[in-house]
């Protein structure tokens, strides 16, 4: 379990190690995707990490196109990709497609999911979906200041244990918790923290059976695949772009990459 990732008491001082690189994203060691529901302060987290000044309105769904920025930490250079804010990755709108395809085919080394601490349940919908696509996830529990104002407390340790991935509490508007977030992202990227993500439990009766059958069929064809169940779900939904990806070599490439990363971390 990766609960120790959430080490509130750890003595680390990142400020000296962190360099904001703005739009300079050349020669990066790791790619980090930034996902999250609309209006969770995702762009604020992006700005806090990169030092860029992307405007962030108090509006659900401001970022449509992908924004990129960079930072470096402990001699490693990171490219941060801000994905459109979405409620889900299961629907058909354009912004969801951009986010979904990037997490699936863009091979991010870490995906940070920004979550609104005041509306945890509705945000977990997206987190659980992302955990199906990629194993290397860090949950950024943002808006802690607002949660406090609304008398809501979230137990980060319980959340991390339940999700099987590190959880970092932040108030990005006031630059709080960003250092800890970077440290954890670094640890996940370098393989110091291995995530064991939550597995969906409540899928019911006949659809569970169908999903399981297709999952094992996919695993038979693609050895070492880590997100076979997500593919099974999307194929059963008739995702046209995934059917095409199966036809050309993109799925095979994705699996190769997953295997490579597993080896890298094992070493």
């Amino acid at each position: 379990m990766a609960t120790e990732a959430n080490c509130d008491g750890c003595a680390f001082n990142n400020a000296a190690n962190l360099k904001k690189l703005g739009v300079n994203v050349s020669n990066v060691n790791f790619v980090v995707a930034l996902a999250g529901n609309p209006n969770t302060g995702k762009s604020t987290v992006f700005n806090a990490l990169t030092g860029l000044k992307q405007h962030t309105g108090n509006w659900p769904g401001k970022t449509i196109a992908r924004m990129e920025g960079g930072f470096s930490y402990n001699d490693k250079r990171y490219k941060l990709v801000d994905l459109p804010g979405t409620y889900s990755l299961l629907s058909t709108s354009e912004d969801e497609e951009i986010a979904r395809n990037f997490i699936l085919f863009g091979n991010p080394d870490v995906t940070v999911v920004v979550v609104d601490a005041t509306r945890l349940e509705r945000n977990l919908n997206l987190v659980l979906q992302i955990l199906e696509i990629t194993k290397r996830v860090v949950v950024c529990l943002n808006l802690l200041d607002e949660a406090k104002r609304h008398h809501i407390k979230v137990d980060e340790r319980v959340l991390a244990r339940e999700l099987g991935v590190p959880v970092v509490g932040t108030s990005a508007r006031f630059n709080k918790g960003i250092d800890a977030l970077i440290k954890v992202v670094h640890d996940v990227a370098t393989g110091e923290i291995i995530c064991k993500p939550h597995v969906l439990k409540s899928i019911s009766g006949n659809i569970r059976h169908a999903v399981n059958r297709l999952t094992s069929e996919i695993e038979k064809h693609f050895e070492g695949i880590t997100n076979s169940r997500w593919l099974a779900i999307r194929l059963l939904e008739g995702d046209q772009s995934l059917i095409e990806a199966l036809g050309d070599n993109r799925i095979a490439d994705m699996v190769d990459n997953q295997n490579r990363v597993m080896e890298k971390i094992a070493v």
Binding site: S88, R122, N125
Partner: peptide, 11 residues
């Protein structure tokens, strides 16, 4: 269609 999915996504 899209309307149903959106409402489900919204909870």
């Amino acid at each position: 269609g899209a309307n149903r999915r959106r409402l489900l996504d919204l909870g």
